[in-house]
Design a protein around this nucleic acid. Structure first.
Lengths: 704, 704
DNA sequence: ATGTTGGCACGTTGCCGACAA
DNA sequence: TTGTCGGCAACGTGCCAACAT
């Protein structure tokens, strides 16, 4: 008997009960990691719209950024009262540019005790016999012995009543008996009631969890119907690329099946006011537009996330996105990706190759990295439905450390991500005169792969080196810091057909040896940034596309254009205008040649200030942080004094301003290296070309 | 298998299927009459909020009128997909003042064929045996023979399969057999499935209906649990008067029971996006505020109405409301009210007495007639929960015709309600300079009853006549047109204790005989308006409160004040300012004396223009329509010409302007009766005091 | 005319060990 | 160790006429 308060104030809220986060996670599955409160995440409206039923029309009233940096304000772990499906309400606060107080992982705000040890839990996928209405439930021994209360084995047969609470706190009783020959654990009486009430069928999973207070909890994970035997977890992966009418593509099959299940299910209805007209399951399209609009306007909002819906997470740890976007994704790259196994009991990794790097929905989200990667799987049968993935979901496969990890930099000096211009603001927020790449400086090499471009279409001189991928793999190159993407794994015995099978290295100038050596050591950027400062750049061509090294990119402000293909300034970070331009200018040119499909992509998130100029704009200056081979563009003309400069730099790199004074050096147009303050600010402003912050007072690696 | 369109556009709408209006009505029950499309209705936000779960907070951002005149734009007959409960979506368009094109009953727009003959249908309340899972269904012979397909009685036993579609079009099959000794009709196979699926219990009703196309339909009407055996239909009747915190009062008990049923019912849930947080059943409070706000802003809106919810209709035929409000409701009045019987098979009338006339929620809806009447029932046991009713739901009991019916007027001349100023605009809409009473001219007598006021507190001379109610009843007075409210019915053998048992008649002046005779004939206003035009008015006192006749009220503009109690101008119609003033001034005075509870109430819907002035404002003029004893106030000063006058009058009374010219007479300040046009308009405007439209050219009853 | 009851037959549910993987 | 099967007993379902109202 449910009692209502006298005033009947919001009896509805009664159901807005949060459930134990551990049980929630047990039901959500091993793949699901919720961002901690106060951590930074990127919210992808595009991803959320996949979460919704029906078309989400964001209208043309205002542009919504493809991803919005937010702080996680709250997470409510909840469960659908009818289906028991777990979902989370995530309250997000968009971060404006000037909120540096939260660190990426949210450890600050979450009082340390945020690493709960996993409680004992057990998941079993129901067999036919388990789900048959005639039968009981075969309890795996492990579950019976570690999760269930201890049975008194002296009795004959040993029996007990197991009491478990479901996600709503409802209590279920099961007769637990240990009998048969050979002996086995069974749930009999009470089980079929449970199966019927919860409408479980073979393939669904049941989760038993022993909570910290000793209580036994039971949750369910419904199987995702409609997939032919493949791994189950992130299933909805195939928005028809560039198809605006049906953004779901093959994915909608999933939703349909789910939908039908909900429809024929006597549950899942609502006796709602509107007359049961609200969308069943998942999220209403309006909720998505609402959230996205609020987000775009910088206002707090709430999203509902169904971890077991056939869609990937659309609220992603900022650090994960940033890390992924530091990598210059290229077709041909090998990666692995985690999936939940069909019985959702384990996680297994699947290998694949990037077949193309291309914006998933160029019409609506032209600047979005969401599902940027079109992939080919080594075991295509199992992952037929997974055609496009987002970069942060895959892990490059290599026994070389990924270059962006900068393994040789001392931890202390590890680049602190700029805390200032965090928004990939494509239209909504005022763009500050200088706006850094929200994903932080990219230190991955810019490279371009194509398996179809005729070699030599570029005017540059080139020579075939005939290095295959396996060659590369075997080559000692890999022990250096070659982009961690070109070789197959050792255990990859059946290479997909699309794996490129030739690699061209093009020497751009005679001192190729030195340049290769530069390439090999570029991870140690203290050297490389010095050595290759003004060096002629080498050119690698892979399938006719040039491969640029970090140096070639980040140092391009020194005046050397590297490749006619990259007509824009190719600095892969900070210099946003140029990055955008890469896509607007040369990339579209590539498109016209039918090459874009397989080429690498810069991320054109900053289309706002299109420039065709190849060099830095006057007054703009590259800023380098100490030994890191990363740089940011700074428009000195907007600054009025050294003081302002220091403040800006402090903000950019997260350094105390007091530390700054004696550590900032610059090279002027004539090549002379000076200390800030050596010249009047006006002079500095006009002549400075490259600026370095050197925290280690001893070293002198600033190109002096 | 439900198919979705490729684009998945609004799959939700799929369920927004309308059902056969006849089946809908059969399920809704005999009490429910939906207003036809294009008819005029009053929408009561207050009433709708009773329809909602939880507190409806209309905020204080803007005042919402208590009732809003609307045109019915559309009615969608629907059924809850889970519970089969029928509901209607009514699309309403608020009517601004200048939309005279729709008549009250909507016959205009509804292409004539709107009077569907009731199809053969049969409702049976399930017996214990019917609902027992073990049993079948005893088909009443009438149902079997008139609704079901004809049985072949030659077989032994006669059997057939009856196929019926439910509200969703789902097909149900029942084995219909005629067997046993004595022979009877039974539904066996298929029946218990139906009972189980629909979760029917004893007391619920099943409706069989033979549709026009010959198809058999089946619907259900669930019993309203929670009432101890009383009649069932309009149950939620007792908002705690004046209690703002819990506007549901005893009523919430009903909701609770219903709610519990829905809760424990595996149906009735929702697998909704929001995570099942939407209100179950009935209407969300936000929907109410939304509708009310739209309505108040004159924008089209939609309401959802559950005819079998325990709340009275909040969209009421305008004519019904107007008719009800023409009556000056007084405590002590006897009435009857229709209820659906417990088995919802019939309608029965219950007798009661108005115990007090008092605004139900003076804080939020100070001007609302909603649930204006507090009532005492002759059979209180059966209607314990019905404490307050709205005037249009009750019917005054009298073997005399109600005065407002004007039975002696030829039908042709029956008052056409003014079509012009229809809004009871209390704040939202601009008040036109001349604003008529939206409920039309009131022709009911203003009277005041109190069983507690000491006689003679008013200064007026008075005499006790000692006429009891039964005296009145027996008295020949009743054969005239005495207000149809003061006597008990013949069959009322147990008079409620609160029935007043004495009646005072106070002679206001010596010519009482004439005045009584005037009273007796006032219904025939052709005489009365002439005779009592300038006559001194008699005073009836009932329990010390004066009773005013129609003449006293409507003719008070001639200068005679009737009673010091009624300090305001007591014209019960048209002269809105005065009516409002009655409540604002004298009624509150009564309140201070603790008398208001049982006194009559004028309807202060026009507080906007408070006036303490007792006479008509300068330039205002009473307009009388021919023989009707009703009048409307007209501000001549806003008119510029006779032409404008005619247009306005035509609008007010729904008369062709061409007919008008020769039919408008007026009496000027000097008492002279003239034809419009006799004087220049400017002169007319200044001197006219009483205006009569005389359609019957022959009669000369205009006080000339 | 129709509601209620008890009888009874049949179908289903659900517990069990045997068997097999 | 645990999934599946056939056996079988208990129970519930549902049809029926008799009886009651």
């Amino acid at each position: 008997m449910i009692t209502f308060t006298d005033s009947m104030k919001e009896p509805v809220k009664e159901t807005e009960k949060c459930l134990d986060s551990q049980l929630w996670h047990a039901c959500a599955g091993g793949m699901v990691q919720m961002p901690p409160v106060n951590s930074k995440v990127f919210y992808f409206p595009q991803g959320q719209s996949e979460h919704a039923h029906g078309n989400v029309d964001f209208g043309n009233s205002q542009r919504i950024p493809a991803l919005i940096l937010c702080r996680v304000a709250a997470v409510k772990y909840m469960a659908d009262p009818e289906t028991d499906e777990v979902y989370a309400k995530i309250r997000l606060v968009p971060l404006r540019n000037n909120e540096p107080e939260y660190d990426d992982d949210g450890v600050l705000g979450s009082n340390g005790s945020e690493v709960p040890e996993k409680p004992a839990s057990f998941a079993k996928t129901l067999t036919q016999s388990d789900a048959n209405n005639g039968g009981g439930f075969s309890v795996p021994r492990y579950c019976a012995e570690t999760i269930f209360p201890r049975l008194d084995y002296s009795a004959d047969p040993p029996v007990q009543t197991v009491i478990a609470k479901d996600v709503h706190g409802e209590v279920w009783k099961f007769r637990h008996i240990y009998r048969g020959t050979p002996r086995r654990h069974l749930l009999t009486t009470g089980w079929s009631t449970f199966v019927n009430q919860k409408k479980l069928i073979a393939g669904d999973s049941i989760v038993f969890l022993r909570a910290e207070n000793g209580e036994l909890c039971v949750g369910i994970r419904r199987a995702k119907r409609g997939v032919g035997g493949g791994p189950e977890s992130p299933s909805g992966w195939n928005p028809a690329a560039g198809n605006c009418v049906s953004p779901y593509g093959g994915f909608s099959v999933f939703l349909r099946e789910d939908e039908n299940k909900l429809m024929r299910n006597p549950n899942g209805g609502n006796s709602n006011s509107g007359g049961g007209l609200r969308a069943r399951g998942r999220v209403r399209p309006e909720s998505v537009t609402e959230a996205a609009t609020l987000a775009a306007n910088g206002q707090p909002f709430e999203v509902v996330y169904y971890p077991r819906a056939s869609t990937p997470e659309f609220v992603v740890k900022a650090s994960a996105v940033r890390a992924a976007m530091r990598i210059q994704w290229c077709s041909g790259m090998r990666f692995k990706m985690a999936f939940e196994t069909e019985d959702s009991s384990r996680i297994s990794w699947f290998m694949g190759t990037i077949s193309s790097v291309q914006v998933a929905d160029p019409i609506h989200w032209p600047n979005s990295p969401w599902r940027l990667l079109q992939v080919t799987w080594d075991e295509p049968d199992l992952l037929q439905n997974v055609k496009r993935v987002s970069p942060w979901l895959v892990e490059l496969v290599s026994n070389m450390p990924a270059i962006h990890l900068s393994p040789f930099s001392p931890p202390r000096k590890k680049l602190r991500l700029p805390q200032h211009p965090d928004f990939p603001l494509d239209g909504q927020f005022p763009i500050p005169p200088f706006s850094g790449n929200p994903l932080g400086p990219s230190s991955g090499p810019m490279c371009c792969l194509s398996d179809s471009t005729p070699a030599g279409i570029q005017g540059a001189r080139h020579a075939q080196f005939g290095i295959s991928l396996s060659d590369l793999h075997l080559n000692k190159l890999q022990s250096g810091l070659f982009p961690a993407s070109f070789q197959r794994l050792d255990n990859n015995t059946t290479p997909p057909s699309r794996i490129p099978n030739s690699l061209s290295l093009v020497k751009g100038n005679p001192n190729s040896t030195e340049n290769i050596s530069c390439l090999l050591t570029m991870g140690s950027s203290t050297q490389s940034s010095k050595k290759s400062d003004s060096a002629k750049s080498p050119q690698f061509l892979l399938f006719g596309q040039p491969i640029l090294t970090e140096q070639q990119i980040s140092l391009s402000c020194s005046g050397d254009m590297v490749s006619p293909v990259l007509t824009g300034n190719s600095s892969s970070d900070g210099n946003l205008d140029k990055t955008a331009n890469f896509s607007d200018g040369s990339a579209s040119a590539l498109n016209q040649q039918g090459l874009a499909d397989n080429s690498c992509q810069g991320f054109p998130w900053y289309k706002d200030r299109p420039t065709t100029d190849l060099s830095l704009e006057t007054g703009h200056c590259k800023v380098f942080m100490e030994s890191e081979d990363v740089g940011r563009t700074l428009d000195l003309s907007v600054l009025g004094s050294y003081e302002e400069l220091y403040r800006r730099l402090a903000n950019m790199f997260g350094i105390e301003r007091s530390e700054m004074l004696s550590h900032v050096f610059y090279r002027d147009a004539s090549g002379a290296v000076k200390h800030t303050g050596d010249e009047p600010f006006s002079e500095f402003m006009k002549t400075a070309r490259r600026l370095t912050i050197l925290m280690d007072s001893g070293s002198d690696n600033l190109g002096r």
